[in-house]
């Protein structure tokens, strides 16, 4: 009882607010209910449903759901060679068409309505004649073949260069070549990478990869120049896939042959095209001086990336048969066969 009730004199501002039994009961029920629920969330053992308890701190660590890449290879017609070489001829475009002819043209690889990703080498902002990047004419011709002959739905051109991506695509001529031919450029930004799982890889079993252009893609084609490399002796078709890696990929130079052979496990492309139009004979992979480059006249296509690289190492870089170690390692990982004798077809002009 309040003072006012006791003495009978009521303060003018006093407003009595009795609590009914129902209100009291509902208050108690609310407290018990919410308290119980909160207590359950915080205290129930970790295995129980809806429990938020994290006794060791490991539960709250971010869980990365890695994606996986498909196998983009297609079956080629019986008797088709594993590597084709087209030399001479009036233009790079014509060489490409000749190199594809033994397989039955690009239609043998790409079906109508496919989404195709073309991965050129756009690693530096060099002019194309310096041989450090893929030739724009080859890319134009390839994209036209894909869109017109093979009736692909979309052609995506992507690379994750070490240097500034917009500058590299611009100064190497790849951006203009792609856009004029009707392709679409994908540049790497912070949101374009996803954690990739490559089962069986030694170094990159889980690694962030430039995944945006590979989403929902049906076929993947690599277009690589033929280059010397100061560390692994050659940078050709297999090393080209390095450009899809994200994260701190500079750590892999401590075991460069292992990573290049792992790349052949990570990516099983539909087709690899080697462009021997401007061969970077020395000072690779950056080049930069016209005297480093030897003009060539070869375009190679291959479904066996190991044999393709081996043939190009011997005949285009003219280094003989002491192949880089990553080729044997890739053969050991069963992504190709090193001995190319009998599997190379040189297409007549």
């Amino acid at each position: 009882m309040s003072e006012g009730e006791k003495t009978g004199k009521q303060h003018p501002d006093y407003v009595k607010a009795p609590m009914s039994r129902r209100r009291f009961a509902s208050r108690v029920a609310a407290v018990l209910g919410l308290g119980g629920a909160a207590g359950y969330l915080a205290g129930a053992p970790a295995g129980w449903p809806l429990s938020l308890r994290d006794p060791t701190g490991r539960r709250s660590e971010p869980v990365k759901k890695p994606v996986q890449l498909g196998d983009y290879r297609v079956a080629v017609r019986a008797g088709a060679p594993d590597v084709t070489v087209a030399r001479g001829g009036p233009s790079i475009a014509q060489r490409l068409r000749r190199a594809l002819a033994p397989y039955g043209g690009i239609e043998a690889f790409v079906s109508p309505g496919d989404i195709v990703m073309v991965k050129p080498n756009v690693a530096f902002d060099r002019a194309p004649i310096l041989g450090a990047t893929s030739q724009p004419e080859l890319l134009t011709e390839l994209i036209k073949l894909l869109l017109i002959d093979a009736r692909a739905q979309e052609v995506r051109v992507a690379d994750n260069p070490i240097e500034s991506p917009p500058d590299c695509f611009e100064k190497s001529g790849i951006r203009r070549a792609t856009e004029e031919a009707g392709g679409r450029i994908y540049l790497p930004d912070s949101t374009a990478f996803k954690m990739l799982n490559t089962p069986g890889a030694t170094l990159i079993e889980y690694w962030p990869v430039f995944h945006r252009p590979l989403t929902n893609v049906d076929k993947v084609i690599g277009v690589a120049p033929v280059k010397d490399h100061n560390l692994c002796h050659a940078s050709m078709g297999m090393k080209n896939w390095y450009g899809l890696l994200g994260g701190r990929r500079n750590q892999f130079h401590q075991d460069i042959h292992e990573i290049v052979s792992d790349l052949s496990l990570m990516m099983r492309p539909t087709l690899t095209i080697l462009d021997g139009s401007q061969i970077l004979m020395k000072n690779g992979p950056t080049g930069g001086d016209p005297s480093d480059v030897k003009p060539g006249d070869a375009v190679l296509c291959g479904v066996d990336p190991v044999a393709l690289d081996a043939w190009a190492f011997e005949h285009l870089l003219e280094r003989g048969r002491r192949y880089p170690r990553y080729l044997e390692m890739a053969q050991g990982k069963r992504t190709g066969i090193l001995d190319w004798t009998g599997r190379v077809e040189e297409v007549a002009s």
């Binding site: 070490i162 490399h229 000072n283 950056t286």
Partner: peptide, 8 residues
């Protein structure tokens, strides 16, 4: 590898 000058 990444040094861009020629010669490096």
């Amino acid at each position: 590898e990444v040094c861009p000058t020629s010669p490096k």
